[in-house]
Design a protein around this nucleic acid. Structure first.
Lengths: 127, 127
DNA sequence: TTCCATACTCACCAGATGGAGAGTGTGGAT
DNA sequence: ATCCACACTCTCCATCTGGTGAGTATGGAA
């Protein structure tokens, strides 16, 4: 067969999936978007993220941020003051992911009405 | 421009999230990738997808395809033969999503080693 | 008559997900 | 002495996710 296979290797494939799943969870994209919004602030505090990413719980925000930190996508700056002050910021790597994700984000914004229309048609057809 | 607020409205925001979550689940991206691979076949049968998207179960493949169909991203062509023959194909809308997703896919392939390295460092630092 | 292929659908169930709400530590303000 | 701010961390628990394996329909082949 021409162009052989796009399969790079089982291991690479597994890694791609692993990273993809990390990125593609319920909150990660929202948090990245919030940290990387072009006009938005660069360093963001925990509580501010909690407010901006509406609906997220403390637990999930913490977890999401830890995962992003582990993957080298955000840095966590702790100020030894009281009450605590912690600031999160996208790393260059995180920013590059934000840019890539931006394409999907834009697709959704551009096509959401079309998607909604299709859903309506589909649902109506079998009710 | 300052682009003031990126917040379009609570309703739009909700829709974006809804579509985003649909797209960002465990299997959707894999299935789209399989249907939209540039060198890959256009019309794909159920069983073939089952083989190509390794690890997916019948149940989840069916569910994923139904969701994609509902959103107008794939068409489902049923041939009235026996044994059954069903072919799936990306719609133009689905292809445009595939293109957008491609950016993320490429990011992952390009940066997966870096991510893996960060993970190693992070894990080592607190073991 | 029995088997087979294909594309499902369904019931069951373990494990993962994630929300709610309480608890923690510290030092300054009241 | 008490309270508060902030950024967590922990436990409990309901819901969701998704895998397994069985069942279904149909007509042709053996």
């Amino acid at each position: 067969m021409e162009s052989v296979d796009r399969k790079p290797s089982a291991e690479t494939e597994a890694l791609v999936r692993e990273v993809l799943e990390r990125v593609a969870d319920k909150w990660t994209l929202l948090v990245i978007e919030e940290l990387g919004g072009e006009a938005g602030p660069r360093d963001v505090r925990f509580t501010r993220l909690l407010e901006r990413v509406g609906g997220i719980s403390q637990k999930m925000l913490t977890k999401t941020l830890r995962q992003l930190e582990r993957d080298g996508l955000v840095t966590r700056k702790v100020f030894p003051v009281v009450p605590p002050r912690v600031e999160y910021r996208l790393t260059p790597l995180g920013e590059s992911l934000g840019a890539a994700v931006c394409g999907v984000w834009e697709w959704v914004e551009r096509h959401k009405d079309e998607v909604r229309r299709h859903r309506g048609t589909y649902d109506a057809a079998r009710s």
